[in-house]
Simulated scan of single mutants.
Amino acid sequence: MANPRACGHLDCGDGHQVWWELTGNPAGVPVVVVHGGPGGSIRPYYRRLIDPDRQQGVFFDQRGCGKSLPAGALDHNTTPDLVADMERLRDHLGFERWIVLGGSWGSTLALTYAEAHPERVAGLVVSGVYLARAFDVWWWWQGGGHVFPEVFAARDAWLPAAERGDPRSAFVHRILDPDPAIHRPAAHILGMAESQTLDLWPAAPGDDPCGITDAAVQSARIFAHFEAHDYFFAPDQLLRDARRLAGIPGAIIAGRSDMCTPPQSAWDLAQVWTDARLHIVPAAGHRWNDEQLCRPIIAELARLAGAG
């Protein structure tokens, strides 16, 4: 993968410095890529989604994530803060409008941004749609156990028996505990379980809780912070406000075999955001390293960039 042609830290206030990168053609249509998580970061393979001849990719690490500073920070780290950071970055880079691409938690943030600033969105593509409703939370923590019974059972068996009825509260409480002896193993156990739901052919997880990296712990703590605050949304806020997307061209893409964010949420969003094309991709999973999932994303970005 080519190195970015420009990069740097943007001062976003509250002590936060957000890392950003530009790739592709300086004269191309800007496409801002919103990574997953909460607590994820820019991945090198994201760059292949951008046509380097006709588009310019805008990548950034959200507050506390990746190369953004301070690493792992939870203070002043909310969904409205992240939306404001995107606007600061757009203004800093001098773009009047841009295409917004988000996957997984990135779809949540991309939709929130587009609902808040529809006039700045030339097009919108989301995959692995997560709407942060009660259903979505239930599926992630419990519903997926109908497909991965042994994975979820092993996860919950790590908890005291009295806490297994509410694994969300139990894990979030432990991961946010300031004591590394408590939060590191909890982050490891939860990460092992999640890793088995992301790909059609997942790698075998490690079994050494001491082997979890500091970066993975920071990521887990940011995730738990957003979980503890219900992603800073009112109930059903994201889908209810999807009417604000009217007039924005775009696409909603779901892997038929996405066990992390199943296609139901993509379908529900498509019923409200009727300007979007819905693709449910056979034999595709959740992440952008899935070739089957990437093909319609690249095609839809090309369509939207051509219309811009």
Rank of each mutant, 00 (worst) to 15 (best):
A203E: 15
D156Q: 07
V147D: 13
A215C: 13
S195I: 07
S219R: 06
V217M: 06
L159Y: 08
L198K: 09
D177M: 03
G143I: 05
P209F: 08
S257I: 02
H183S: 00
D241R: 04
D199E: 14
L200E: 08
D208K: 01
T261N: 10
D230L: 08
D236I: 07
P205G: 10
E194T: 02
A154K: 07
A154Q: 13
G191H: 05
R168K: 12
A234N: 15
A242P: 00
E227S: 04
G145V: 05
A254Q: 09
D156E: 07
A161Y: 10
P185A: 13
W158S: 06
I212D: 00
P167A: 08
G250Y: 12
D241M: 08
P167V: 10
S169F: 03
P160W: 09
D241G: 11
D166T: 02
P167L: 07
D268L: 12
R174Y: 06
Q218W: 12
A220I: 03
Q196I: 11
D258W: 05
P263Y: 14
R243L: 14
E227M: 03
S169C: 07
F223I: 02
L245K: 09
A228N: 11
Q271P: 13
M192P: 09
A246M: 05
R155D: 04
A276S: 06
Q196D: 05
L269S: 13
D236H: 13
Q218Y: 14
V151H: 11
P209R: 06
D166H: 00
G211S: 15
R184G: 00
D275G: 09
M259H: 14
L176F: 08
C210Y: 15
L245E: 11
Q237T: 01
T213H: 13
S195K: 03
G145S: 02
L190T: 06
A276Q: 02
A204K: 15
G144R: 15
F226V: 01
V172N: 01
P249K: 14
G250M: 04
L198I: 11
R256W: 12
I182G: 07
G255P: 00
A154C: 04
I253M: 08
H173S: 15
F148I: 02
P178G: 03
A161K: 12
F171P: 04
S219P: 11
D207N: 15
F226K: 03
C210A: 13
A242Q: 05
R244V: 05
G247S: 10
A251S: 02
E227C: 00
Q271Y: 11
E194Y: 07
R277L: 07
F233Y: 14
